[in-house]
Design a protein around this nucleic acid. Sequence first.
DNA 1: CTACAATCCGAATGATGTTAGGAGAACCGG
DNA 2: CCGGTTCTCCTAACATCATTCGGATTGTAG
Lengths: 208, 208
Amino acid sequence: MLGEPVRDRRAERHAATRAEILEAAWEQVRANGLAALSLRDLARTIGMQPSSLYSYFDSKNAIYDAMYAQGAQQFVDEQKASMRTPDDPLEALKAVLRFFVNFCAADSARYQLLFQRTIPGFEPSPASFKISEDNLAELGELLARCGVSDPPMLDLFTALGTGLTDQQMSNDPGGDRWVRLIDEAVEMFYQHITNKARKPGKGRRPRS
Amino acid sequence: MLGEPVRDRRAERHAATRAEILEAAWEQVRANGLAALSLRDLARTIGMQPSSLYSYFDSKNAIYDAMYAQGAQQFVDEQKASMRTPDDPLEALKAVLRFFVNFCAADSARYQLLFQRTIPGFEPSPASFKISEDNLAELGELLARCGVSDPPMLDLFTALGTGLTDQQMSNDPGGDRWVRLIDEAVEMFYQHITNKARKPGKGRRPRS
DNA sequence: CTACAATCCGAATGATGTTAGGAGAACCGG
DNA sequence: CCGGTTCTCCTAACATCATTCGGATTGTAG
C-alpha cells in the first residue's frame, strides 16, 4: 500500500502538548485575568520547566496569539452553528449582533483578548487575524448585497462591543439618533431595576 | 500674628513632585496603554532613580490608585459642571448616561482604569473608591425619589460601559426588550454606514 | 549649631520572560 | 543492531521589572 503516509508520532505529541498548554493558559487567564499569564506558573501546572515551553511556542506573545486564533475560530464556528442567516441582509446583521453580544458575555477574558487590546506588546499575527478577517469579509458580502461599498463593518462591532463609546457616533450626522437610543436604554433599565427582585445572598458587587 | 501657620516648603515640593509623577504616568499610559506603566521609565522622565519614587508612592499600585482617584474626581467634577440635573429623575438619569458615554470616549486609558479591571494586582483603595461611591450615592437619591429601593446603580453603568454584555440583561424577565434595542442599534448603524462619506486618508483601522 | 526628618542614590533581592548549551531519548536509514 | 539526526527537556544564566535596605546629602526646626 503506497497510500497510508507514515504517522509522525512526534508531531502528534507536539500538538497534544501544545493543546494542553493552551488549555492551562485559558484556565489561568479565566481565573486571574488576561494579563496575569505567567510562563512559570504555566510550566508548573504542565509539569515542565519554563524554558521547555519554548519548544512549543516562540514567546509568551505567541501563546497569546494561539489563544487569539482559538478564540477567533470559536467565534466563527459558533456563529455558523447558531445562526441560520436570514435572506434579508439587515435581519442577518441583527442576528450576528445578537450572537456577538452573547459570545462576549460568555467569556470576558476571551472578549478582552479578541476585541480589546489590553496587553501592551501583543497584537495578533496576520495568520491569526486572518481568521477574523475572513469571517468579516463574509459579513461584508451581506452588506455588499445591499449596495454598500467599503463597509466599515468593524465599527459596528466596536460600537456595541465598547458600549456605544465610539467617538465616531457622536460626530455622526444624525447622531441624535444615538442619544435617543441611550434614552431608550435608560428607560428600559429603569424599568428593569424597578421591577426586579434581587436574589438575596447573590448580590454581586459590580465593578465601578 | 498667631494665625498664619508656617508654610511647609517640603510638603509643597512633595505635592508638586507627586503631581509631576502622576502627569508623566498619564502621559505614558495614554501613549502605550494602561498596563505599560514602567517605574523605570517614569523615574527617567522625572529625572530620578526608580527607588526614589517610593518617597512619593508606596508602590506601583499606589500610583494606579492615585490615578484612579484623579479620574474619579474628574468624573465627578466634569459631570457636575456639564450637567444641570433636570427635575424629572428619569430625565436626569438620561443626562448622566449621555455624559458617561462622552467621558469614556474622551480617554480610553482612563476609562479602562476606572471602569474595567485589566491590571491584575490592582483594585482601588477604599479612599479612592469612595469618590466614585459618593457620587453614585447622590445618583442613588435620584432613584430613591422615584421610589426605587436598593438600586443597582452600577449595573446601569456596567451595562452601557461594557456594551450590553452583562449577563444580567439576558436573564432579565422581559429581556427581549434588549434584543429590540440591539435591533434598533443595528438599523441605526446600518443607515450610518450607508450614508457616510469616508474621509480619504483618515481611514483608521478598527480594532478587530 | 545641632538634631531631625525628608529626599535621593546605589546596591541588592526576588520575580519575570527569554536564551544558550548540554544530556538524554526517540526516531530514522543502514 | 547501530550511528546520526532531531526533538525534548533541563540547568544555568541574563536582562528587566518592582521593591527594599542602608547610607549620604540636604534642607528645615529648635
